[in-house]
Nucleic acid binder design. Structure first.
Lengths: 85, 85
DNA sequence: AGCAATTTGTTCGTATGTATT
DNA sequence: CAATACATACGAACAAATTGC
């Protein structure tokens, strides 16, 4: 069961962003802790690094994650209130 | 003051080539030095990467620039004599 | 102090699909 | 139809900072 569907109308990077957003909201990624590395996430979703990074950009805009250069990407703590819309 | 006019009769990539050619000839880009990255130039001119690269192709044909893969695009040193026409 | 591995940052090469001119 | 343009995506290579030994 691939985690993204290349044939879906939604772009892969958006599908990935949605998946990760849901997981973070569900608590699968603990606030304050580090997310998987870009490399690991690329392998998990079967996409190129650019695509994965594009997805992370979305989450960063949501205020759900932040990245420390050469260290990793972390889940914010505490999580921001979900934005309506 | 956008640097290119999408409504002009000239294609955007040609307008960009002309602008950069003029700047290089005027010495705004020092011979031997690196030009801005494709990304930065895309943002400056507000065009897609393909369009920007098409403009760089023109300058490359003019012998004004050369590109080192994964490093950047540089202004030739010395500049070639302007070709008549 | 030194060194290699890890990880993110950057940059160009290429290809595809869609829309516009 | 052909050329151009945009957005996305994959690939490759290199840079730079961090980490662990």
């Amino acid at each position: 069961m691939p985690e993204i569907d290349p044939d879906a109308p939604e772009w892969p990077y958006r599908q990935i962003a949605t998946t990760l957003r849901t997981e973070i909201r569900a608590g699968l990624w603990e606030p304050g802790k580090r997310l998987s590395t870009e490399k690991a996430l690329c392998e998990r979703f079967g996409v190129a690094r650019e695509t994965l990074r594009r997805a992370l950009d979305c989450l960063r805009e949501d205020g759900l994650i932040f990245t420390i250069p050469h260290r990793g990407t972390y889940v914010v703590d505490p999580l921001p209130a979900p934005t309506p819309e």
